[in-house]
Design a protein around this nucleic acid. Sequence first.
DNA 1: GAGCACTGC
Length: 690
Amino acid sequence: MSQFWKPGTERPRLVDDEEGGVLLYTTSSSSSSGFGYGSLEKQRQRLPVYKYKTAILYSVETHATTIIVGETGSGKTTQIPQYLKEAGWAEGGRMIACTQPRRLAVQSVATRVAEEMDVKLGEEVGYTIRFEDITNEELTRVKFLTDGVLLREMMDDPLLSKYSVIMVDEAHERSLSTDILLGLLKKIQRRRPELRIIISSATIEAKSMAAFFNTRRRREEEQGPTKEPAILSVEGRGFNVEIFYVDDPVSDYVRSAVSTVMSIHDQERMGDILVFLTGQDDIDTAIQLLTEEAQSSGKQGLVSVPLYSGLPRADQDLVFSPTPRGKRKVIFSTNIAETSLTLEGIVYVVDSGFSKQRFYNPISDIENLVVAPISKASARQRAGRAGRVRPGKCFRLYTEDYFSNEMSVVGIPEIQRSNLVSCVIQLKALGIDNILGFDWPASPSPESMIRALEVLYSLGVLDDDAKLTSPTGFQVAEIPLDPLISKMILASCEFGCSEEIITIAAVLSIQSIWIPVRGVQKQLDEAKLRFAAAEGDHVTFLNVYKGFIQSNKSSKWCHKNFINYHAMRKVIEVREQLKKITQRLGIGLKSCEGDIQTIKKAITAGFFANAARLEPFSHNGMYKTLRTSQEVYIHPSSVLFRVNPKFIVYHSLVSTDRQYMRNVITIDPSWLTEAAPHFYQKQLHSSFPQ
DNA sequence: GAGCACTGC
């Protein structure tokens, strides 16, 4: 056990929280450093977190869980792992882990820390993200990784026994995998009292997080670290941001955002503007409106730039290009600028108060994207984007009264808004039998849990006792994809078409392989026709893949055919990974040599639940799902749009004014009963036409 | 004849 804080040395001062029960450490100012005088070292010491070094190490030493409340720019992510290393937490072959929700953050933080420690990245300091393991088993002591990767590691090492400290960063974002990880870490702590957990979280979330990790029992003799979590606050480095509200609620936030931009341009000193809207539609409208207004009023000097994830990389880079002299850049962005991207030079923020959020309805089993009000936590985060270079201003397009009295404090955690099929199978694979009784930081609805259990049961992944079946259940859990896709892959091994199916699986797990275009729709449609297969979209993907390989993976070829080159590279990557996994599972790849019916049968084996039948006498292409008789339509982007075959299986539903089925293939209904007799037995008699 | 907030294994 490492001993950083020693009795006899100055003990950090403890202050009771006003409500009691939670500890807060105040600054114990650093006197001696004992470090070199390199410029990196000096930079490190200027970070706000440096003053708390002793307090943090003391807290980690004496508490099983430490919660660090730190604003952006405090330096916690890069510094704390180094402090732990210096204090000896990586001695004796142990490792320090620091998780992030996003890959890019993992890479950049690891690179920075290796630089500061003056070591080669991949040796003492390393990182692991999907497709990239830059660590060395013997040498790596400080490891950065996505929380998804750490969850995968648990499948081989359920107690994460090689780690002495695990720091979960950005926990306040409450992403699906962060929440699963937190629940599991709490369980691990019971088995491994020596494990230390550090959770970095925003102020608002700290107390509920502390309550979750408080496993102290009354009258219990405590050995080892205190079970009650400690909370430490570290100030950030942002500048002050002045907040403004509208006097009356606005009826059209896009218009209102544009006129706010105009008046900032009119009245405020130079500095770029960041406008938070909900999606591509809003953003396009706003840019058009702004251009018109600037023209009609003769105002000059505004450069507007869109920003959303679907934008081609080159266009996204425009956002980072320096603003020309005498001009003012206006960035119209989705939520991507709230967490994933940091923009320099922003002085003004305009906050619409809305974002698109995913909601899952377990009854209909449909995930919807809905424009919904943001939380106070998001509003604060958005405002903070204005104060990175100098004091800024944030204009909120809602009233102060609404902010204070109606806005929810934090958003709904993702786990309460998602389909839980992947999540449940992951827990099952880790030996968590009582899923309904699992201790979550936020519990998902029982309906969602039960729905997920039902789906997994129908796939043959879980048995009557809700245990993973062998080998199918364990194999599906091993494949890092949606369980429906994993099941399809396993079936393809039996059908002898796994070569083809892993290609399809790779394409389906990519957002879209077509270039996202507006205005050149006709050309895209024509390009698609070159690959279109009568059997449907999945087979079309195979044709695209074949063409890409034959072109020698040429980006020119992609461009000519309106195919997204980066997406295709990703397809190749995922496919390679799937190839390795199938080898590990002992199921070799086999090609069916163009026997398309076999391919479709394998797809049906995974997606039988997503079957739909064309309504008899339907003139507008209306289908009904076989399972729930919901009204659905083939998406206009499908090669089977307007073809309207009688029976189809779809990959997913997107809902707008209608429910659209994306990626469909034609099937023979008899395959459904073949693939899932238990599932379709009843329907066979009641609703299947002959 | 329509649309894709954002992540991740």
